[in-house]
Simulated assay, not measured.
Amino acid sequence: MQEETIRALAGLSYPVEEWRLQELVEKRLGCRLGDSTIRTRLSELVKKGLVELVDREGRSRTGHRCSRYRLAEVGVAA
Rank of each mutant, 00 (worst) to 15 (best):
Y69W: 05
A72Y: 10
I38Y: 05
R20G: 12
G75Y: 05
S13P: 10
G34S: 13
A72Q: 08
Y69V: 03
R59H: 09
Y69D: 07
T37A: 15
L29V: 08
E26A: 09
R70K: 15
V51I: 05
Y14G: 03
E52L: 13
G34T: 09
E44P: 00
Y14L: 11
A10K: 15
E57K: 13
Y14E: 15
A72T: 07
R7N: 15
E3W: 07
A10M: 14
L45W: 03
R70P: 13
A78H: 11
S43P: 00
V51M: 01
R56Y: 14
Q2N: 14
L9G: 00
E4S: 02
C31H: 09
P15C: 10
I38K: 05
G63Y: 04
S36D: 13
R39S: 13
I6N: 03
C31G: 00
V54G: 10
I6W: 06
Y69F: 13
V76T: 15
K47Q: 00
G63D: 06
R59D: 03
V25F: 05
L33I: 03
W19L: 06
V25A: 02
R28L: 05
R68C: 04
S36L: 03
D35M: 00
G63R: 01
L71D: 03
I38S: 04
R61C: 01
E52V: 12
T5S: 05
R65C: 02
R61F: 10
R56F: 14
S13C: 11
L24Y: 03
A77Q: 13
E18H: 10
V54K: 06
G11N: 12
E44G: 00
L71T: 03
L53W: 14
V25P: 02
A77T: 14
Q2K: 15
G63V: 11
L12M: 13
L71E: 04
W19K: 06
D55A: 11
K27T: 04
L45Q: 04
T62I: 11
S43C: 00
Q22T: 12
R65N: 08
L12D: 14
G30N: 07
G30D: 01
V25R: 11
R68H: 10
S36R: 11
R68G: 01
Y14H: 15
D55L: 07
V25K: 10
V25L: 05
R65F: 06
H64E: 13
L29F: 04
G11F: 04
E73G: 10
L29W: 02
L53Y: 06
G34E: 10
L29Q: 10
A8N: 01
L9W: 07
E4C: 01
S43Y: 06
P15H: 07
R20F: 03
T62C: 01
L42E: 03
C31N: 07
W19N: 11
P15D: 14
R28N: 13
D35W: 06
E26M: 01
L42K: 01
R28Y: 09
A78E: 15
W19Q: 15
T5C: 14
V76N: 05
L45M: 04
D35Q: 12
M1R: 11
E26W: 04
E4P: 05
V46P: 02
V76Y: 14
L42F: 08
S36N: 12
E3H: 07
R61N: 11
L71C: 05
V46Y: 03
E3C: 00
V46S: 01
S13I: 09
S60I: 05
Y14C: 09
R61D: 13
C66Q: 11
L50R: 08
E26D: 10
E26L: 03
